[in-house]
Design a protein around this nucleic acid. Structure first.
Lengths: 125, 125
DNA sequence: CTAGAACCTGACGTTGACGTGAGAGACAAG
DNA sequence: CTTGTCTCTCACGTCAACGTCAGGTTCTAG
């Protein structure tokens, strides 16, 4: 499949796919006149990349981790990287849980009907 | 206290504190010659701001939410914003938990001693 | 009063993950 | 063969949360 089809079937932009190649995350083949050609597996790969980006990983980290996720290479460096990222995500989850709890506290107190909360006028910017 | 003391007692940079003021997150008083002057409560406020930034909230969102967290105002708009951010954080946590699980799977399989994992040569960039 | 540290206001630089044209080539349909 | 759509490669623009440098001012210790 060509880049446009992969883009529409994954929901990411054509520009993003070219960027992934630039970052060596997803290297397509080339057909005759130089157009990119992706196989079916690219769909899952793109979705994995998007998931990792959404988890806050950088292109560099994703590039280093993908071979591990593919379970093809396994070096001391890659294990260290995996553990480091796992710990980072762990801390990030803790942070988010704390913030969520704080927001929940504000929400429940503000949604309690007769708790004396005053309505202020909106202050648009 | 002046900006330098607040900076060192919170761990954020002087530049960041000026930026917070620019974003209307923390407005200090001014002394005579125009120097910023913060009260003690500013320390907690700065730490709250940092926490919210760490949770991925934007300056704009934090600006809109701070009055709610202060529990002083309570409008339909603010409640909608609170719920929206809470849901966003919820989804973000889900994402992170999934990625963590995936990394854990890779880690446990790669750390299993005799599983036939091959050592590849490092591919530095 | 004076030196030096801390502070002030612009204003441009940085980083990452793309967005957005510009100008030209590739490819399927008729 | 032509037209239209898709694709190509530069290459500059964007946005957020600051970093950093310049040139000038304010405050504090001695």
């Amino acid at each position: 499949m060509r880049i446009g089809e992969l883009a529409s079937s994954t929901g990411v932009s054509v520009r993003a796919l070219r960027y992934y190649e630039e970052q060596a995350l997803l290297i397509p083949g080339r057909s005759g006149g130089g157009q990119r050609h992706y196989d079916e597996a690219a769909v899952d790969r793109v979705q994995l990349i998007q998931t990792l980006y959404a988890a806050g990983l950088s292109s560099r980290t994703i590039h280093d981790l993908l071979p591990c996720v593919d379970a093809k290479v396994n070096t001391p460096q890659s294990r260290a990287l995996l553990n480091a990222e796992r710990d980072r995500i762990d801390r990030q989850i803790d942070q988010l849980v704390q913030v969520r709890a704080r927001l929940d506290a504000v929400i429940s107190s503000s949604e309690a009907p007769a708790n004396g909360c005053a309505y202020a006028d909106a202050t648009p910017r």
